[in-house]
Amino acid sequence: MNVLLTCIGRRRYLAEYFKSELNGAGLVLGVDMNGGAPAASACDRFFSAPGLYADDYIDFLLNLCSVHRVSAILSLNDLELPLLAANAQRFREIGTIPVISSTEVVNLCADKFLTGQFAESIGVSTPRSYATLESAEDAISAGTEIFPLVVKPRWGSAGFGILFVENLDELRFAYAYCQRMWRKSAFARLGQPDAAVLVQELISGQEYGLDIFNDLEARPVGFAVRKKLSMRAGETDRAITVESEPFEDIATRIGNALGHIGNVDCDVIEREGRQYLLELNPRFGGGYPFTHLAGANLVRVLLNCVRGQHGQEVRYQAGIELFKCAYLASVGELAEQHVAMEASAG
């Protein structure tokens, strides 16, 4: 069984997790637009990809899957998810399982306003959200909303463009500034220029990350929870796993109603005993290693799903505290390996 990880970038740990689980019974292939991607040397084979929006990008991936008999393909990039979702059937036709949710689910997760509406529809608390500056100002004038507030892109990730405002002047400035930032960013491909900014109620409390896993038929398998202790560049930097029971209700509601495939990384904040859903990311997120190393081996669960095995459970140990650290890899070595792999592939 060979697995292809796309837009692998810095996710060395995922390549290593898949290699460990395959244990020589298959290869981990990686692709990235950056030939010197830090995760390149962690893959069994690595290939430099054309630009994400190049006309031949999907054909490039399809060819790799066909030539290397790839059993499953996973994306690690929010911008790529809509592309793979739209072309999922083309991968199935060549015998590759796209571990990707439907276009509807991907779009719902990418759009933070739709995410909030989804949460409300399944009885899950979520911050009050306003899709226009006018609606936010009306709520403030009516006394149904108070400062401070959050201003952020409606489509975005990794903490991009998030601002906090304390009064009307700051709100108006932040809204316009956030809109300009978003329109110049790669995220502009995901949404609508005239509805790019979201104003939200500020919820202060303890943040948690949930990995909620569904099988390839979108049936819930299980979930794991980590308490976020510190963040860096929009990702969890330090966390401790916690018991899952207090989150059983919110995880069950999301897993049953969302209909996602594989993992969904959920951001939840707890205030005065009430859990609020902030965001959904239908992929392995930056916080996954914390639950993986505590025993919630969703990579193994996923590979077993690809093999057609059912009846799995997600188990892990609470109270495992971990933090991320960095180490250096030679770009020269990565580039040299990349050239050698390209030559052998030819």
Results as ranks from 00 to 15, higher is better:
Val124Leu: 15
Pro193Ala: 03
Leu5Cys: 05
Ser102Gly: 08
Ser121His: 09
Leu61Phe: 08
Phe18His: 13
Gly287Leu: 02
Leu114Phe: 07
Glu201Phe: 03
Glu134Met: 01
Val268Thr: 07
Arg219Asp: 09
Leu61His: 07
Gly36Tyr: 14
Leu278Pro: 09
Glu245Asp: 15
Ala49Arg: 04
Tyr327Ile: 04
His310Ala: 10
Ala345Glu: 12
Ala119Val: 04
Val199Ala: 04
Tyr175Phe: 14
Val268Gln: 03
Val31Met: 14
Arg271Asp: 08
Gly308Val: 12
Leu14Met: 13
Ala110Ser: 11
Tyr175His: 12
Leu4Ala: 06
Gly308Cys: 10
Phe160Gly: 05
Glu243Ser: 13
Asn2Thr: 06
Tyr276Gln: 04
Ile97Val: 15
Arg90His: 03
Thr236Ile: 11
Gly51Ala: 10
Ser41Trp: 04
Asp138Glu: 01
Thr241Gln: 13
Met1Trp: 03
Glu272Val: 00
Ile100Asn: 03
Gly35Val: 09
Leu22Asp: 11
Glu145His: 01
Tyr177His: 13
Thr115Met: 06
Lys324Ala: 04
Val99His: 10
Ser71Gly: 09
Gly255His: 02
Val151Cys: 10
Leu229Pro: 02
Leu29Arg: 02
Ile269Glu: 14
Lys19Met: 03
Lys227Phe: 07
Asp44Ile: 05
Ser157Glu: 06
Arg274Gly: 02
Tyr13Arg: 13
